[in-house]
C-alpha cells in the first residue's frame, strides 16, 4: 500500500477520543462566559437589527414576519460560524502553534482520535452557542412551538458538517492568514445564497439550483420550519445531505491531516 492510499484508509477510533474532547471542554469552561457572549452577541445583534429595521420595509416573508423568518436562518449560520471558527483558529492553534496534538499523540491516542475529537468538540461548542441563540429567539417570542426543540439535533449535525469542512482547511493551512480565503470565498457567499436573509426563490434559476446544493441550505430548510412550528418537507433528504457532507469532509480532512503530521 503506498503512502497516499494509506492516508485514505478508514479511521481507527478509540474511546480515548473523549479524553481529548474533555481537554477542550475544560479549556472552554475556563472562559465559558466570554465564549458564549462572543458566539451570541453578533448574530443576535444582526437578527434584531435587520429583523426590526428591514422588517419595517418587508412586512411579510413566506407568510410570517421578517424577523421570524430571519430567526431560523440566524440559528443556522451562527452555528456554522461557531463550528468553523473553532476548527480553523482554535484547531490550528492546538495542532500547529501549541503542539497540543503532538503531545497527545505520545499518549495511547492516535491522530484519528484527535481529529474526530476536534470534530465532535466543535459541533458540541457550536451546538451550545446554538442553544443560547434559540433561547434568545424564544425569549423574544419569535418561536413558540415545541417543535423548535427538534432543531437542536439539527444544529448539532450542522455543527458536525461545518466542523468537518473546516478541518480540511486546518489540515492545509500554512498560517492563520489562509483562513481568510475560506471565509471570503466559501462561507460568506454561502451565507448569502442559502436562504438565511431572504428566500432562495429570489435567486435567478441557475444560481438557485447551485445554491440548493450547499450544506447550509439544507440546514436552513430543516430549522426554519421547525422554529415556525411546521414539519419540514423532505426531512430525510436534508439530513442525508448534511450527513454525507460530514462523512466525506471528515474523511478528506483526516487523510490530509495524516499526510501533514504522520510523516
Amino acid at each position: 500500500m503506498s503512502l497516499a492510499t494509506a492516508h485514505f484508509s478508514p479511521p481507527v477510533l478509540s474511546l480515548r477520543l473523549f479524553a481529548v474532547w474533555r481537554r477542550n471542554f475544560l479549556v472552554w469552561r475556563k472562559l465559558a462566559l466570554p465564549s458564549i457572549v462572543g458566539n451570541l452577541a453578533d448574530p443576535v445583534i444582526y437578527m434584531l437589527g435587520l429583523g426590526y429595521g428591514l422588517g419595517m420595509l418587508v412586512p411579510q416573508v413566506e407568510g410570517v414576519s421578517y424577523i421570524a423568518f430571519l430567526a431560523g436562518g440566524t440559528l443556522c449560520y451562527s452555528t456554522m460560524n461557531a463550528a468553523t471558527f473553532e476548527v480553523l483558529y482554535s484547531g490550528f492553534s492546538r495542532m500547529h502553534v501549541q503542539k497540543t496534538w503532538e503531545a497527545i499523540m505520545n499518549a495511547p491516542i492516535a491522530l484519528d482520535d484527535i481529529v474526530a475529537a476536534e470534530l465532535v468538540w466543535a459541533a458540541s461548542k457550536s451546538c451550545l452557542a446554538g442553544v443560547a441563540i434559540l433561547a434568545v429567539i424564544a425569549a423574544f417570542g419569535f418561536t413558540a412551538s415545541p417543535l423548535a426543540l427538534a432543531a437542536i439535533p439539527v444544529v448539532f449535525l450542522t455543527g458536525l458538517c461545518f466542523a468537518a469542512l473546516g478541518l480540511i482547511m486546518t489540515a492545509l493551512a500554512p498560517s492563520y492568514d489562509f483562513f481568510m480565503y475560506y471565509f471570503t470565498l466559501f462561507i460568506t457567499p454561502m451565507t448569502l445564497l442559502s436562504g438565511v436573509f431572504f428566500p432562495q426563490s429570489q435567486l435567478p434559476e441557475t444560481v438557485r439550483s447551485i445554491a440548493e446544493l450547499l450544506p447550509l441550505s439544507h440546514a436552513v430548510s430543516l430549522v426554519r420550519p421547525l422554529l415556525l412550528g411546521q414539519m419540514p418537507a423532505q426531512i430525510g433528504l436534508h439530513l442525508a445531505v448534511l450527513a454525507a457532507f460530514t462523512i466525506v469532509a471528515f474523511w478528506l480532512a483526516l487523510a490530509l491531516t495524516r499526510r501533514r503530521l504522520l510523516k
Binding site: 480515548r16 479524553a19 481529548v20 474533555r22 481537554r23 475544560l26 479549556v27 475556563k30 501549541q98 503542539k99 497540543t100 503532538e102 503531545a103 497527545i104 499518549a107 495511547p108 491516542i109
Partner: peptide, 20 residues
Amino acid sequence: SLDPDFTCAENLIVFAGYFG
C-alpha cells in the same frame, strides 16, 4: 508542548486522562 491554558497540576491531570 505543555498546555498553556492549564495550570501545572491541570496539565498533569489532563495528560493522565489521555492514558485513561
